[in-house]
Design a protein around this nucleic acid. Structure first.
Lengths: 128, 128
DNA sequence: TTCATTGCAAAGGGTTTGCAGGGCG
DNA sequence: CGCCCTGCAAACCCTTTGCAATGAA
């Protein structure tokens, strides 16, 4: 795990915290290019991995196979539009009951539940 | 979507239905190699995609970036060991309430929830 | 016979890694 | 001044695709 503060790392974190969407590594890369023209994609990947291991950003488990990141680390879930892939935040749901219920029937020591809600976003809902 | 029945397709489906784990395309490929020495990985991928679109197998959304498949299409969720990646079935949970709750706070027309439980499997639990 | 499906190999797309130079502590 | 981090390019890995041959209906 990296320890040093670099311009790259802080710029990436700041970028993620300032935006309200759920960008991929490539999105972040393009987004900080104007500020750091020399930055490389590899550095973005490395720092996003670091930051997520440090708990400073969240790594999202979306339904496509692209890893997305979230600068908002307060507890909340996500809804994904099954038509266009749009992702929105959703208020945190209380999962204690569900966790207990699941634990009853499993030998695993269950620690957490990740909810991935899916449906149609307003735009796709209208046009379908 | 494919229509013809081929030895490859039925062998792949049979393999998936006979096993109790959650194999990747490559796992299935290796597993049917003895029965169909000439089969290619591409065919396995194509047929798994077909079968999942036909609803005959389930495509799993695991936490690693490998797509896994499940020959058991009855409703149930999965627990993933955060240490070794082992996957086990878990009894289906009633999500109606949670769906309604989530819908209250979202403009999306929410259609379904995917639960991904994670924790430690018995083996990793003991040795940690 | 027709044309969907196959096997093969090459391409694709996201992510990771080796390396030498650069810069944080 | 040591060595972590960067940029670059190449490597990786899973998955998809183009194409000619094959085989199901």
């Amino acid at each position: 795990m990296s320890r040093r503060n670099t311009v790259q790392k802080s710029t990436i974190l700041k970028n993620l915290q300032e935006r309200c969407d759920h960008p991929s590594a490539l999105d972040v890369y393009h987004s900080i290019k104007s500020e750091l023209p020399q930055v490389s994609l590899a550095t973005v990947y490395r720092n996003l991995e670091d930051l997520s291991q440090q708990g400073k950003v969240r790594k999202l488990d979306t339904l496509d196979d692209i890893t997305r990141f979230d600068g908002n680390i307060s507890p909340h879930s996500h809804v994904i539009c099954s038509h266009c892939g749009a992702i929105e935040d959703i208020a945190p749901v209380n999962s204690d009951l569900m966790l207990k219920e699941a634990q009853k029937n499993s030998l695993f020591a269950i620690r957490e539940i990740e909810f991935v809600f899916s449906g149609l976003c307003p735009n796709c809902h209208i046009s379908n």
